[in-house]
Every structure is written in C-alpha cells, then in structure tokens.
C-alpha cells in the first residue's frame, strides 16, 4: 500500500461508537465464511460487509467519489486491490494468493467471493485481517471457518489483526 497516498486522504470518518440511537447500521462489523473443500483443496471465501462501509472506504482509499449498488463506475478491480492489501493469507511464511471472483448485493450488504488453492499437506494458515481498520477503528471482523464438520470462529479487530487458523483438526 502506498502510505503517502493513504496519509494524504483526510477522512470524514473518525468514528467513536459513543452513541447508538439508530446509526447507519448500529455496529461496524463484517463476517467472512471460509470453507475448505477437503477433496479439492479449494478455500472458498465469502466476505459480507455493509455496502456503505465499503463505499466509504473505497472513497477514502481512491480519493474518488464512488457509488456502489448500482455501481457508477467499474469497481471490481478497486475492491480486489483493496482486499489484497487488507486480507493476507500465508502458510509457513509463504503468501497464498487470493483470487477475486466477484461481488453481489443483498439489500444493504455486499457479498464478495474469493478463492485460493491450498496444498494438501497444509494444516495451518495465518490470516492478517485489517479490513476497514484504518478508516473505522471500531470495526470488528468475524471469520467463520468450516471444513466438513470442523468449525471454528475468530474475531479480528484493531487489537487482534493476525491469527493462526488451524484448517485441519
């Protein structure tokens, strides 16, 4: 990530969750389903975020007016590049590349689909998850991992940005 550009952008969004009432959507939270298909070694990721959060962050990252749902401009490459910078998988210190497949809108949510191919012998990944953190400091990012009947959940936030994820019990 280009720090220079990032620091230049002055965000409108310093958010202290001091208050509730009925803000845009009460909490700043994302969730990501992460399923390992044991037969193919395919890691399927479905990231669910609030569309207005994503819009705000893309604006802040690109310095341009962005509108999602309906998109005013092509946004897929922008989203893919952003996610690459905040969602990082590695195994034994070797980065694993993520393939961005696309997105769908469901009411006020955006579902983003990504996949990766994992080697057979891998039993543990490391995930660095910094989604929206530099714009929304109270952002919480949940991850639900599943492989057959094995399930495990993780909470990432400003304090916890990196965690090992056991993918085979």
């Amino acid at each position: 990530m280009n720090l220079q550009t990032m620091f230049k952008k002055i965000g409108l969004l310093f958010i202290m969750l001091l208050t509730m009432g009925f803000t845009l959507h009460d909490v700043y939270i994302s969730s990501m389903k992460m399923e390992l298909i044991p037969t193919s070694g395919e890691l399927q990721l479905t990231l669910q975020v609030f569309t207005d959060d994503l819009e705000l962050v893309l604006q802040s990252q690109s310095g341009e007016e962005i509108q999602l749902n309906p998109d005013r401009q092509a946004t897929n490459s922008l989203i893919a590049a952003y996610l690459k910078s905040v969602l990082k998988f590695s195994a034994a210190k070797t980065p694993i590349s993520l393939e961005y497949l696309g997105k769908e809108y469901h009411d006020d949510l955006t579902l983003i689909y990504m996949q990766a191919k994992l080697a057979d012998e891998m039993s543990e990944l490391e995930l660095t998850h910094q989604l929206f953190l530099s714009e929304l400091p109270t952002q919480q990012n949940l991850v639900h991992f599943k492989s057959d009947s094995y399930r495990k959940s993780f909470l990432f936030d400003a304090r916890m940005q990196k965690s090992p994820i056991r993918i085979r019990p």
């Binding site: 720090l3 990032m6 620091f7 952008k9 530099s134 400091p137 400003a158 304090r159 940005q161």
Partner: peptide
C-alpha cells in the same frame, strides 16, 4: 470514564488524522 470503557491497542499502521486525534 465512558471514553475509556473499551480496551485499546496499537495498530502498526494508523491514519494521520486518527493518530493526531
């Protein structure tokens, strides 16, 4: 005290505006 009701931690990377604030 409400300003300190949540835990806090350092981020390796912070926006300048957040840092200043």
């Amino acid at each position: 005290p409400a300003l300190e009701k949540n835990g806090s931690g350092f981020q390796p990377l912070a926006r300048a505006s957040t840092f200043v604030k």
